[in-house]
Amino acid sequence: MKNHDNKVRLFLVDDNAVFIKSLELELMQNADFDIETYDTAKQCVENLSNEPDIIILDYHLDGIHKNTNNGLKTLIQIKALHPKMPVLILSTQDTIEVAVNCMHHRAFDYVVKSETAFMRIQKLIETIFHYQKMEKELNWYMDRV
């Protein structure tokens, strides 16, 4: 679902203002995205009507707002409303248990915040659109068979 300018719409959800601004600048350097940033889960969910193509969501969202949902609860909420929405989970935690739990709740992928995180996110965005294109082509073919 592209916006009126046919740009890819990304939601970046993270309560770390420096990280989110850095990610936004990095993504804008490499592609022409329409990016909306939020520092709480509530803001993200309230704006789902803006039809993001991809949501990049921090696992911990309680650095500033202590009573907010964390990324996992938000992922579950997003998937209940939009089951096919690709959601990338970001975290400083490099643990298998957290990653598996996120994947169990249908995150597209889990990215550890590290020196390679921005590059990995860009590759995942490309992968998501590649899968979506393949799915459209398969549906087109199946409709004709």
Results as ranks from 00 to 15, higher is better:
Glu36Phe: 12
Pro52His: 05
Cys102Val: 05
His82Tyr: 09
Ile125His: 06
Gln43Val: 01
Ile54Glu: 02
Asn50Met: 07
Tyr141Gln: 10
Leu12Gly: 12
Phe118Arg: 03
Arg120Trp: 00
Met85Asp: 08
His104Trp: 00
Gly71Lys: 01
Asp53His: 09
Asn3Ser: 08
Asn67Lys: 10
Ile89Pro: 07
Ala17Leu: 11
Glu24Val: 02
Val18Ile: 13
Leu138Gln: 10
Val13Lys: 01
Phe11Pro: 11
Ala117Ser: 15
Lys79Gly: 01
Glu137Gln: 14
Phe19Leu: 14
Asn47Asp: 15
Asp94Gln: 10
Pro86Asn: 03
Asn3Trp: 00
Lys136Trp: 00
Leu81His: 00
Asn47Phe: 01
Ser91Pro: 02
Lys7Phe: 07
Ile56Leu: 00
Asp14Phe: 10
His104Phe: 07
Asp5Glu: 15
Lys66Asp: 10
Cys102Asn: 08
Gln132Tyr: 10
Lys66Ile: 08
Thr116Gly: 03
Arg106Ala: 15
Leu88Val: 02
Asn6Ala: 13
Ile76His: 03
Gln93Trp: 03
Glu46Val: 04
Met28Pro: 00
Met103His: 04
Glu126Arg: 05
Leu25Gly: 09
His105Phe: 12
Asn16Ala: 14
Pro86Gly: 05
Asn6Ser: 15
Val100Lys: 08
Leu81Phe: 01
His130Tyr: 13
Ile78His: 03
Asn47Gly: 02
Lys79His: 12
Phe19Cys: 07
Ile89Trp: 01
Ile121Ala: 08
Asp39Pro: 00
Ile64Cys: 05
Gln122Ser: 14
Val8Gly: 08
Tyr141Ile: 13
Ser91Trp: 01
Phe11Ile: 05
Ala17Val: 07
Thr37Cys: 14
Thr95His: 06
Glu36Met: 13
Leu72Phe: 02
Leu48Glu: 05
Leu27Gln: 06
Asp39His: 05
Val8Cys: 14
His65Leu: 02
Phe33Asn: 07
Asn16Thr: 10
Glu24Ala: 10
Leu23His: 06
Val112Gln: 07
Gln93Ser: 15
Asp62Phe: 00
Asp53Ser: 15
Asp32Tyr: 01
Lys42Phe: 06
Asn101Gly: 06
Leu10Arg: 04
Glu137Ser: 10
Glu137Phe: 10
Ile121Met: 05
Phe19Asp: 14
Thr37Leu: 03
Asn101Thr: 13
Ile20His: 03
His4Gln: 15
Met28Arg: 11
Thr37Asp: 06
Thr74Asn: 04
His104Asp: 15
Pro83Lys: 11
Lys123Glu: 15
Asp62Ser: 11
Asp94Pro: 04
Val87Ile: 11
Asn30Cys: 02
Ile76Met: 14
His4Val: 11
Gln29Ser: 10
Thr116His: 11
Ala31His: 13
Leu57Ser: 04
Leu138Arg: 09
Val87Pro: 08
Asp5Val: 06
Lys133Glu: 15
Ala80Cys: 05
Asn139Met: 10
Glu26Phe: 15
Ile35Leu: 11
Met119Pro: 00
Ile96Ser: 09
Gln29Lys: 12
Phe11Asp: 09
Ser49Phe: 11
Arg120Ala: 14
Leu72Ser: 08
Thr74Tyr: 00
